[in-house]
Amino acid sequence: MNTTSPLRQDKPMTDALVIATPATATGFRLGGARTITADDAAQTIAAVTQEIADGRAAVIAIHGALWSLVAPSVRATWTKQTSPLILTLPDEDGDVSAAKDAALRDLLARAIGYQITFTPSGGPE
């Protein structure tokens, strides 16, 4: 599959996109993120496919509730891709806080290339 587009050749990928559920999209928009809404796996896949073809987004962040609807084989392909970087955002309705923290650490490690810890050392907790 060729993901190069004329737009990508003319402009570098500098944009970040959030694909969110309708219920969470407003929060991302209020935070200043370019946001597309999706209701199901098909809409999520279509949005990602369109953004790859567009070539504008350097990062595509998918809300956890939508990510979980997409087939594991598609998610595996996305997580191996680096241009654009496609990742999942922790779902606020997810299991436990530790899992959310681990997902965020993994997300940041993929985005910047090294692991960040959120546990303070040498100072008060």
Rank of each mutant, 00 (worst) to 15 (best):
T4S: 13
S5Q: 03
P6K: 05
R8E: 11
Q9T: 15
K11L: 13
P12G: 12
M13N: 08
T14N: 11
T14H: 12
D15C: 13
D15Y: 14
D15G: 09
A16K: 06
L17V: 12
L17D: 03
I19Y: 07
A20E: 06
T24F: 07
T26P: 02
T26M: 15
G27S: 07
F28Q: 00
F28I: 08
R29M: 13
T35I: 04
I36K: 14
T37V: 07
T37M: 10
T37K: 08
D39M: 14
D40A: 11
Q43E: 13
Q43V: 10
I45G: 03
A46T: 10
A46P: 02
T49D: 14
T49W: 00
T49F: 09
T49A: 14
T49V: 04
E51W: 02
A53S: 08
A53Y: 01
D54R: 15
A57Q: 00
A57V: 03
A58N: 03
A58R: 13
A58D: 07
I60K: 00
I60F: 01
I62S: 01
I62W: 07
I62P: 01
I62V: 15
I62N: 07
I62A: 05
H63A: 15
H63D: 13
G64S: 08
G64V: 13
A65N: 06
L66S: 00
W67L: 01
W67K: 08
S68W: 03
L69P: 03
L69W: 00
V70R: 09
A71F: 05
P72Q: 09
V74Q: 09
V74R: 10
R75F: 03
T79G: 02
T82C: 05
S83H: 12
I86P: 00
T88L: 04
T88Q: 12
L89E: 03
P90H: 05
D91W: 10
D93L: 11
V96G: 14
A98W: 03
K100V: 13
A102V: 04
A102G: 05
A103F: 02
A103C: 04
